[in-house]
Design a binder for these strands. Sequence first.
DNA 1: GGCATCTCATTAGCCTACCTCACGACCCCT
DNA 2: AGGGGTCGTGAGGTAGGCTAATGAGATGCC
Lengths: 139, 139
Amino acid sequence: MPAIALADSLRVALVRMGRRMRRERADENLSLHHLSALGTLQQLEEPTLARVAAAECVKPPSMVKTLQHLESLGYVERSDHPSDGRMVLFRISDKGEQMIGETRERRNRALASAIEQLSPEDRATLERAVPIIERLAEQ
Amino acid sequence: MPAIALADSLRVALVRMGRRMRRERADENLSLHHLSALGTLQQLEEPTLARVAAAECVKPPSMVKTLQHLESLGYVERSDHPSDGRMVLFRISDKGEQMIGETRERRNRALASAIEQLSPEDRATLERAVPIIERLAEQ
DNA sequence: GGCATCTCATTAGCCTACCTCACGACCCCT
DNA sequence: AGGGGTCGTGAGGTAGGCTAATGAGATGCC
């Protein structure tokens, strides 16, 4: 399969899947991308706004809004950077940690049950594909 | 890897990839999802509004807007359904066909060149994963 | 054959989540 | 000390979804 055709079909699949996932948030208090930002906050070494935004493939002003919202809900706290006064470090609060633990499973349940119905080969393929897609997204 | 964890990482990867792709439309006249709708129009047997919307994983009112826009640009034409007066059939115009041919390659070029840098194994994995993701999206 | 009900496309109005541009605060370098 | 880059943030705009409501046409049931 030529790279262009693969890119095309990948694009179509991802757009549709994205819409499918977005529709699933009906009964949740936190949207998909808020949860994703919290996850990133957990992973990053020194989570400044710019770094979180970059990890989420989003521009800084967008991430400001997201983090402000999470902060207003008490899921995120901020502290000054020890040496650089321009930067702000964001970290997940205890309340945020707790909420993530409770929410993530419920959040992914529909997708997980669809995944459980895949054949073992398909599931293994999917598992190998995820980091590849992550890598493509970073560029 | 448990299904929940796979669902979680897949979700994160797809969200980021979606954002990355969306940002790539700078110099294009047609957005990602317009192009996708045109592609669906080409594939469907009897492309009524509801069917196109379903294929694109979108609600009918959203697809109305999309098709109206494409119609205003001359890429889509509509005709009455032969037997059911409630329905409308949408089809891609000659101008639309031509535009698709020109645009799709340019559109996918950045993604394709990222794909070309993958190892052959990764590329093969990706190729196998696409239809699996499509299937997940349909549910 | 006529009324109730259902389906389809459409409109109106809203919301989320991005973007760019502009700005003030701060860092660093000379 | 002061000039240029970087960081977070505010303002304002846009894209692309959604639900609810509406009107036209189909269908089903006496």
